Amino acid sequence: MTAISTDPAVARTGTPRRITNVMRLHLVNRVTYIGIPWIITAVALGISIIVALLIVASVSGPDQQVALEGMGYSWAVLSPLWYLAVVGVQAVNAVFPFALGFSITRREYALGTLLTYVAMAAFNATGWAILTEIERAINAAGVTFHHFTALWFADAGVGTVWLSLFSLQLLIFAVTSAFAAVYARWRALGMVVLWVAVAVVLIGIVAFAVLTGTAPPIIDWLFGLSTASLFAALLVPAVLAFALGWLALRWAPLRG
């Protein structure tokens, strides 16, 4: 005769709680998401300061001002963003199997990861936007120096600076994690197919625009967009990339 257990069932924690737990898993090692990007920011800023000091020490007269203004073409301000590609890959390779080991569903992992990306992108964009405004005030005081105010940041308002940095981070997070998810599901063959598919789509779009004569209007339209609109549009491919990653993770095995 089979005994019937009268012990109360163990209640499963609510979905919001488990989504929050996914975010905590991502942020267990805060150096990955926060520490290293800001270390790179500090190092890049230090290098820019050294370059500016070398210009002041070695160039005089009108040429000095021209050389200092030339720093406005430096891409050093974007240097922390390239590291975020590593974060997107680690979010899948390291955290995904670990999260499912705690009975977190794939859907909860995806939502928690997305919220982590949004939170980190907003945090970093806010910090960098504040530093941009500080540097803008320094330039207004008569000291010519460009690191955070390089490229389009020099003329953009604080809202546009924040939006552009936020969108770029989300796009990098989404694309790299999508590639990692495809690799986790289909391995090397999936990566080859994905790269070929991306190349075919891009070439197809360009060929269609050229053959139909719509390329010039499209180019004029793109150049006519405001900086804010252009970077807001980057959220669309970011969403598509995240959706691709989610579809891959739905069938991805936990191990090799």
Rank of each mutant, 00 (worst) to 15 (best):
M1K: 12
T2A: 07
S5P: 01
T6R: 13
D7E: 12
D7G: 02
D7W: 05
P8S: 09
P8H: 10
P8E: 10
V10T: 15
R12H: 10
T15Y: 02
R17D: 04
R18L: 07
T20N: 10
T20W: 14
V22R: 02
V22K: 03
V22Y: 04
R24Y: 08
H26E: 05
L27D: 03
N29T: 14
R30I: 12
V31A: 15
I34P: 01
I34T: 13
I36N: 02
W38R: 02
W38Q: 13
I39P: 01
I40N: 08
A42K: 12
V43F: 15
G46P: 06
S48D: 11
I49Q: 01
I50H: 13
L54V: 15
I55D: 00
A57L: 11
V59W: 04
S60F: 11
G61M: 06
Q64P: 00
Q65G: 15
V66S: 14
A76L: 15
S79V: 06
A85Q: 13
V87P: 07
V89R: 04
A91N: 07
V95N: 06
F96D: 03
L100W: 09
G101F: 08
G101L: 05
T105M: 08
R106G: 06
R106E: 08
E108Q: 15
Y109E: 02
G112A: 11
T116F: 05
T116I: 08
T116S: 14
A119T: 13
A121R: 03
A121C: 04
A122M: 10
A125G: 05
G127T: 00
A129D: 04
L131F: 14
T132G: 13
T132V: 04
E133Q: 09
E133C: 00
A140Q: 11
A140K: 10
A141P: 00
T144V: 11
F145A: 03
H146P: 00
H147M: 12
H147K: 04
T149Q: 14
T149H: 02
L151D: 05
W152Y: 07
A154P: 00
A154E: 13
V158L: 10
V158F: 07
T160I: 05
W162D: 01
L165R: 15
L165C: 06
S167K: 09
L168M: 14
L170E: 05
L171A: 11
A174V: 09
V175T: 13
T176R: 01
S177Y: 06
A180H: 08
Y183V: 11
A184M: 12
R185C: 04
W186T: 06
A188Q: 13
A188I: 15
M191F: 08
V192L: 06
L194D: 04
W195D: 03
W195A: 13
V198W: 08
I203H: 06
V206H: 11
F208K: 04
L211V: 11
T212S: 15
T212E: 10
G213V: 07
P216R: 07
I219G: 02
I219M: 10
S226Q: 13
S229W: 03
F231D: 01
A232Y: 02
V236H: 09
P237R: 05
A238E: 04
F242M: 05
L244I: 15
L244R: 02
W246P: 02
L247H: 08
L249Q: 03
L249M: 11
R250T: 12
A252H: 03
P253Y: 07
R255M: 06
